[in-house]
Design a protein around this nucleic acid. Structure first.
Ligand SMILES: [Mn+2]
Ligand SMILES: [Mn+2]
Ligand SMILES: [Mn+2]
Ligand SMILES: [Mn+2]
Lengths: 222, 222
DNA sequence: ATATATAATTAGGTTTGCCTAAAAATATAA
DNA sequence: TTATATTTTTAGGCAAACCTAATTATATAT
């Protein structure tokens, strides 16, 4: 049985591995977990003893198959709970993360399975992130960053790189949500900022913003 | 902010105080929490420092108003979650306690309030135990033990003194549940065992069993 | 290739929450 | 009332997770 802290480390390693290849540095993990490098080294050793990570002193850490399995279960629980909070308990999508950080550590296989059934086996959480199934399989969708599109392109919003409360509140304000239709009508070459058309509204987006929006690029029949 | 362990101590003290008056002994608490007396002494001191309990060395411990308020919130959360698990997630009433022991420690006032609303503000948990409201008020029902009734008495089952899985499974087998109608048809003076009529079925109950069943005594118009 | 900067590890502490064994206080019995 | 038994507290340790400061290894720049 893993401690809450061990679970948080595994999840953090998993998330960083989604972004970058190879071993993960102590400092990167410390940053993600908002802790100090010394604490990370210590914990990594414990996880290595338990065969949950492969660890080579000074050369970073990687999940083993077991470690990955554990991490995926935590991610599954996190996202199922977020879905529950938004769809059943009237939480806004920017207020669920902290509570899900707690709920993801509840240990009960039956609870996870019954919750999944109760919610109708959702495939995506409120932020568009895929929910691993009971076997740890992730439905993968081909996502592009909005910033990669060209003028005239059409797309549908499918998720976000940044799930912070401030970014989600910004999206609420611009009325951008999951499955929102977006058309790129102008890209400013000076700063790569973008003007997009959403539901007949012209919305200006900085490069930072468009970088953090994942879309599915669609071809529109004229 | 209280730790999980501190919350468990407060809840245990609260539950023991429901049964017996006056200060609660270190050994009684140790037994309830399945820990050692030395650990209890230590924790009690911490709780006393935080003004959550009144503590007199060698003479036991009692909740302060603050301590009682905290304990009632934990009990509220525990029972709301049990209700959720049984009514929405298809748990049987004998499998909810352990999971609720974990869920009761989730910290989010909004979660508690929204869960309460979502469930329709239930007044009793699946075992018939009252759910404190947001202000810590308990709806109190005048409960008797089934063992206190006389031959010929009619009653409705309203709760149990023992919520252990084995007792609840026994009740399932005898088809005794909340709001079940019970008529006492015989009491054996030798061992105080009882025969009751439930839905036209004669059910034998030991003194131990009838002691653990709470009922509302009703008068039946003939 | 060597010096310097950066990153990671080790050493040594702290707090929480548990333990066993010894000592002290209280309760009970002769 | 005094002796004995029981209960409670204290003393001293341990493991998990965190920390700061010092040391060591690796990476970078001259
Ligand atoms: Mn989240
Ligand atoms: Mn977490
Ligand atoms: Mn319970
Ligand atoms: Mn608990």
């Amino acid at each position: 049985m893993l401690t809450q802290s061990e679970e948080n480390y595994l999840k953090a390693i998993f998330h960083i591995q989604q972004e970058v290849e190879g071993g993960i540095s102590t400092s990167r993990l410390a940053e993600k977990l908002e802790t100090k490098a010394a604490s990370v080294t210590e914990m990594i050793k414990r996880l290595a003893d338990k065969k949950l990570v492969d660890y080579q002193k000074y050369y970073g850490v990687q999940l083993t198959d077991m470690g990955r399995k554990h991490a995926l279960l935590i991610v599954r629980k996190h996202r199922l709970w977020e879905f529950f909070l938004v769809e059943r308990l009237n939480f806004n999508w920017d207020e669920v993360h902290e509570v899900a950080e707690q709920l993801e550590h509840i240990k009960s296989p039956k609870l996870v399975e019954e919750l999944d059934i109760f919610l109708g086996r959702p495939e995506y959480d409120p932020h568009g992130d895929p929910i691993p199934d009971a076997n740890g399989n992730l439905p993968k969708s081909p996502k592009k960053r909005l910033s990669q599109l060209k003028t005239g392109d059409h797309a549908i919003c499918k998720g976000f790189n940044d799930n912070s409360s401030s970014f989600l509140k910004f999206l609420d304000k611009q009325e951008i949500g999951l499955d929102t239709q977006i058309e790129v009508i102008h890209i400013e070459s000076f700063d790569e900022s973008m003007t997009v058309l959403i539901d007949k509204r012209e919305v200006p987006l900085s490069k930072t913003a468009s970088d953090n929006i994942y879309v599915e690029h669609i071809t529109v029949e004229v």
